Simulated scan of single mutants.
Amino acid sequence: MYDEILDVAETLFMQQGYQATSTRQIADTLGITQPNLYYYFKKKEEIYYHVMLRLATEVSGNLERMSSNNEQPFEEKIRNMVYYLQQRHPFNLFMMLHDIQHTLSPDIADKLFVLWTTSYKKPFIELLTESKLQLRSNIDPEFAVSQLFISISSYFRSPQKEGQIDRAIDLFLYGILDE
């Protein structure tokens, strides 16, 4: 039942966000009572944390595997990693980050921020850092990856916008100036 709760909760949280999803809705979707749900998780925030922990573990492993693929050129790795995130996360990243910052307790928000940093951002940062390509001297890889996520996150809800994601990645990698 534990995994079934997390499966249903993940779907609801990703579709509706944290605030719009209730424990009653999770229980009703599963066909169980709320007390049964509370046997496994004491409160909604705990469910959300475990959903994100499970998701972050999966995402981290896949992103690290993609970034370490030595048969692909750098740009292809970045594109594949972004497309993976788009397919695995058909939701608004801004909504998720807003929920983390403004809705959850500071303790859980801090834990989720660490998960986000180590599972989502770290593989991209390491790819930039370990690549043989030379970044401009004034570009911090962590800042660059944050800007990449800002650029691509609005396209995650629309799989048909792949061309726009490609353009956002191209802009991220090569800038706007024609040298």
Results as ranks from 00 to 15, higher is better:
residue 2 Y to L: 09
residue 3 D to P: 11
residue 4 E to V: 05
residue 5 I to H: 02
residue 6 L to Q: 06
residue 7 D to N: 12
residue 7 D to F: 09
residue 10 E to Y: 13
residue 10 E to P: 08
residue 11 T to M: 07
residue 11 T to Y: 10
residue 11 T to A: 11
residue 13 F to R: 10
residue 16 Q to E: 12
residue 16 Q to D: 10
residue 16 Q to T: 08
residue 17 G to L: 04
residue 19 Q to S: 08
residue 20 A to R: 07
residue 21 T to R: 00
residue 22 S to T: 13
residue 23 T to S: 02
residue 25 Q to G: 13
residue 28 D to K: 10
residue 29 T to Y: 02
residue 30 L to G: 10
residue 30 L to T: 03
residue 32 I to T: 04
residue 33 T to Y: 02
residue 34 Q to N: 15
residue 36 N to W: 01
residue 36 N to T: 07
residue 36 N to I: 06
residue 38 Y to M: 05
residue 39 Y to T: 02
residue 39 Y to I: 13
residue 39 Y to C: 11
residue 40 Y to G: 00
residue 41 F to T: 11
residue 42 K to R: 07
residue 42 K to I: 14
residue 42 K to H: 05
residue 43 K to V: 11
residue 44 K to P: 09
residue 45 E to N: 01
residue 46 E to S: 08
residue 48 Y to C: 02
residue 48 Y to W: 03
residue 49 Y to H: 14
residue 49 Y to L: 10
residue 51 V to W: 07
residue 54 R to H: 06
residue 55 L to A: 02
residue 56 A to D: 08
residue 58 E to S: 10
residue 58 E to R: 08
residue 59 V to R: 01
residue 59 V to N: 04
residue 60 S to E: 06
residue 60 S to Q: 11
residue 60 S to Y: 09
residue 61 G to V: 12
residue 63 L to A: 06
residue 65 R to F: 12
residue 66 M to L: 12
residue 66 M to H: 01
residue 67 S to M: 15
residue 67 S to Y: 12
residue 68 S to T: 14
residue 70 N to S: 15
residue 71 E to F: 13
residue 71 E to V: 13
residue 72 Q to S: 04
residue 73 P to V: 13
residue 78 I to V: 07
residue 78 I to Y: 03
residue 80 N to K: 12
residue 87 Q to H: 12
residue 90 P to C: 00
residue 92 N to T: 07
residue 94 F to N: 15
residue 94 F to T: 15
residue 100 I to T: 01
residue 101 Q to D: 03
residue 101 Q to L: 02
residue 102 H to D: 08
residue 102 H to I: 07
residue 102 H to Y: 05
residue 103 T to I: 14
residue 106 P to R: 11
residue 107 D to I: 11
residue 108 I to Y: 15
residue 109 A to V: 04
residue 111 K to Q: 15
residue 112 L to S: 08
residue 112 L to P: 10
residue 113 F to P: 05
residue 115 L to S: 09
residue 117 T to V: 14
residue 118 T to L: 14
residue 119 S to G: 11
residue 119 S to K: 03
residue 119 S to I: 09
residue 125 I to K: 01
residue 126 E to T: 08
residue 127 L to T: 05
residue 128 L to R: 01
residue 128 L to D: 07
residue 130 E to I: 04
residue 131 S to Y: 00
residue 132 K to C: 05
residue 134 Q to E: 05
residue 135 L to C: 10
residue 135 L to T: 07
residue 136 R to Y: 12
residue 138 N to S: 12
residue 139 I to Y: 02
residue 141 P to L: 00
residue 145 V to L: 00
residue 147 Q to H: 09
residue 148 L to V: 04
residue 150 I to D: 10
residue 150 I to G: 14
residue 150 I to Y: 11
residue 153 S to T: 05
residue 153 S to Y: 02
residue 154 S to T: 15
residue 155 Y to V: 05
residue 156 F to P: 00
residue 156 F to T: 01
residue 156 F to K: 05
residue 157 R to Q: 01
residue 158 S to Y: 02
residue 160 Q to T: 11
residue 161 K to R: 00
residue 163 G to V: 13
residue 164 Q to A: 09
residue 164 Q to W: 12
residue 165 I to C: 02
residue 167 R to I: 03
residue 167 R to E: 07
residue 168 A to M: 05
residue 171 L to F: 09
residue 171 L to I: 04
residue 171 L to K: 05
residue 171 L to G: 08
residue 172 F to E: 03
residue 173 L to P: 04
residue 173 L to I: 01
residue 177 L to G: 12
residue 179 E to F: 15
